[in-house]
Computed example of a mutant assay.
Amino acid sequence: MRHVVWDWNGTLFDDQHLVLEGLHAVLAEAGLPAIDLATYQRLYTRPVKVFYERLFGRPIPADEWAHLDERYHDGYRAALHRAGLAADAERALDLVAEADSSQSLLSMWRHHELVPLVGQLGIEDRFVRIDGLQGPGGGNKAPHLEAHLTAVTHLTGDDPSQVLVIGDALDDAAAAAHVGARCVLFDGGSHPRAELETAGVPVASSLVEALDRAYG
């Protein structure tokens, strides 16, 4: 494996509780009840707007969606100080380096907030490239992964089969399939394990196990 592309939220960054807090801020403003993690995982999908429409039980017009997205990020940001790296994130990053593979970070979280946070957590030097979302949010990851890999072609040799994507969402598996990369899903984030297993790729209970499944 020449290159590993890591997802951030729910994968390297253990923030599922913050995701719920941001969502609860949106639901409270809309007069809707809070939901638990199991309900979140059962309903979650991308595009994220579709997920919100499931919760609201109706279509959401574009102007309302823009407001909801901002409200979510406000709630998430307010709780950000209470989250950190996944328990074995640093060990997993070390293992990739020891295997002489390059690694990068691709997140659907906002780029201008992602980069300083990665720096604060002291792991920015592990990545040859860090890409967060620039522009409207809530869409699928596939076009972003395609652009990300184009930027690191000099490391992958333009061979997507030598790229491993590790993430926590079905959208990560779909994005990997779109570009022809390999994928292992981590069951610590957006979906219950049984749903991840429908993607047809290996599913791991830790980041180190994800690497074992890929390199083993």
Results as ranks from 00 to 15, higher is better:
2 R>W: 02
9 N>C: 10
10 G>L: 01
15 D>T: 07
17 H>A: 15
19 V>H: 09
20 L>K: 00
21 E>W: 02
27 L>T: 04
29 E>T: 14
30 A>P: 06
32 L>D: 06
32 L>Y: 09
35 I>L: 14
35 I>D: 09
36 D>G: 15
36 D>P: 04
39 T>K: 12
41 Q>D: 11
41 Q>I: 06
46 R>S: 11
46 R>H: 13
47 P>W: 08
49 K>M: 06
49 K>F: 00
49 K>Q: 15
50 V>D: 15
53 E>R: 06
54 R>A: 08
58 R>H: 10
62 A>Q: 13
65 W>A: 05
66 A>Q: 12
68 L>H: 09
71 R>E: 12
72 Y>Q: 01
72 Y>N: 05
73 H>Y: 13
83 A>K: 00
88 D>M: 09
88 D>S: 09
91 R>N: 09
98 E>I: 03
99 A>E: 13
100 D>Y: 09
102 S>I: 03
104 S>D: 05
111 H>Q: 11
113 E>F: 08
115 V>N: 04
116 P>Y: 04
118 V>T: 01
121 L>N: 03
122 G>S: 11
125 D>N: 14
126 R>V: 05
129 R>W: 00
134 Q>P: 00
135 G>S: 10
139 G>C: 03
141 K>L: 06
143 P>I: 08
145 L>Q: 01
146 E>I: 01
146 E>W: 05
148 H>A: 05
151 A>I: 07
151 A>L: 12
152 V>Y: 06
152 V>K: 06
153 T>L: 10
154 H>V: 12
158 D>A: 15
166 I>K: 03
167 G>H: 00
168 D>H: 03
169 A>I: 01
170 L>Y: 05
170 L>E: 12
173 A>Y: 00
174 A>P: 05
179 V>C: 10
179 V>Y: 06
180 G>H: 12
183 C>T: 05
184 V>F: 04
186 F>H: 13
186 F>E: 05
188 G>M: 03
190 S>N: 14
194 A>F: 04
196 L>D: 05
197 E>V: 02
197 E>R: 13
197 E>A: 11
198 T>Q: 15
198 T>L: 14
201 V>G: 02
201 V>I: 09
203 V>G: 01
205 S>R: 15
211 L>T: 06
212 D>W: 05
